[in-house]
């Protein structure tokens, strides 16, 4: 177990280094020049050159990268070009909002996916199964911004059950979380369905029934924990998918999280913020996978034994 954590920690460092390198190169290959962006359209060449020097952008790429890594090791993500604040401070201020959104999104996704998937598996081949599979297919296929606008139109504009946008109490979370979760829910419904069908055909399910266990208990106590095993591993991987969705959802709902921060930074070519958000997201994905690896043995004693 300790070896697993150490191994994963080493792997995480490698991944973060790779992500930093790739993002760095990609950002500097962009046609947009942050110095021009900062100086404004009317600025003279000299002003632009000054800004470039001030930001260290006139040095060779490799020197800039080593410099960046040096700071990174000390937990310094640099200063934002536009907001003149530490990137770390900006991210930390917005991280809680994003975490709330992500956790509620994952809850929506897993709750809906698990319920629908189980119902479909229990009615395999029937009308309910086909209905669930069709709905989940639409869920998987619908672009996130369309889902967001649809939910806004129905539940915020027309029915006025939830606020249009913003950050606040529980009612503010519902629509963004739904938007974020719907796509994954369709995916999970399909996964859970096939995992459940697999589990329901296992010998130990027949054993449970032969003991006279009620069908409800057979499903909830014997089948679901076994069907969850592959799902837990998926949730870890899924966090990466989620980060992509977060940017869109935060933009649409005006949710003050790091997705919105990244969105603004991209428009302003604020490279330190883009770098920072990318690295924090990667860290979240790596951590998510690690948590999935650590949770799996809690559910499955066979993994504990290894």
């Amino acid at each position: 177990m300790i070896e697993l954590i150490l191994r994963r920690f080493g792997g995480a460092l490698m991944i973060l280094f790779g992500v930093a390198a790739i993002t760095f190169v990609l950002l500097y290959a962009l046609p947009a020049d942050p110095a021009v962006q900062l100086a404004g359209r009317s600025a003279t060449a000299q002003t632009v050159a000054n800004i470039r020097h001030e930001l260290g952008l006139d040095q060779p790429l490799i020197v800039q990268f080593v410099h960046y890594l040096g700071n990174l090791v000390q937990g310094d993500l640099g200063r934002s070009y536009t907001q003149k604040t530490e990137v770390m401070t900006l991210i930390l201020a917005r991280l809680p909002a994003t975490l709330i959104l992500m956790v509620s999104g994952i809850l929506v996704e897993v709750a809906i996916g698990l319920t629908l998937g189980t119902i479909a598996a229990l009615n395999r081949g029937g009308a309910v199964d086909r209905l669930v599979m069709t709905v989940s297919f639409i869920g998987v296929s619908a672009p996130q911004f369309v889902v967001a606008l649809l939910l806004l139109y129905v539940f915020a504009a027309t029915l006025q059950w939830f606020p249009m946008a913003g950050f606040g109490g529980f009612s503010h979370v519902v629509l963004p979380a739904l938007t974020l979760g719907v796509l994954g829910a369709g995916w999970y419904a399909r996964m859970v369905r096939s995992a459940m069908i697999d589990v329901l055909n296992q010998d130990y399910i027949r054993t449970a029934r032969a003991k006279g266990v009620a069908e409800r208990t057979v499903i909830l106590r014997h089948a679901v924990p076994n069907a969850l095993l592959p799902i837990v591993a998926m949730i870890g991987i899924d966090i990466g998918q989620f980060m992509g969705g977060v940017v869109v959802v935060e933009a649409v709902y005006g949710w003050p999280g790091i997705g919105q921060l990244a969105w603004q930074a991209i428009q302003q070519v604020d490279i330190p913020i883009i770098m920072g958000v990318t690295l924090i997201s990667s860290l979240a994905i790596v951590t998510g996978n690690l948590i999935a690896d650590l949770v799996a043995p809690l559910i499955d004693p066979r993994i504990r034994a290894r």
Partner: peptide, 15 residues
């Protein structure tokens, strides 16, 4: 009551 063929798979692995 019933006993089945495969002792390896007839018991629930997570219980």
């Amino acid at each position: 009551a019933m006993i089945f063929q495969e002792p390896m798979t007839s018991l629930n692995p997570v219980m």
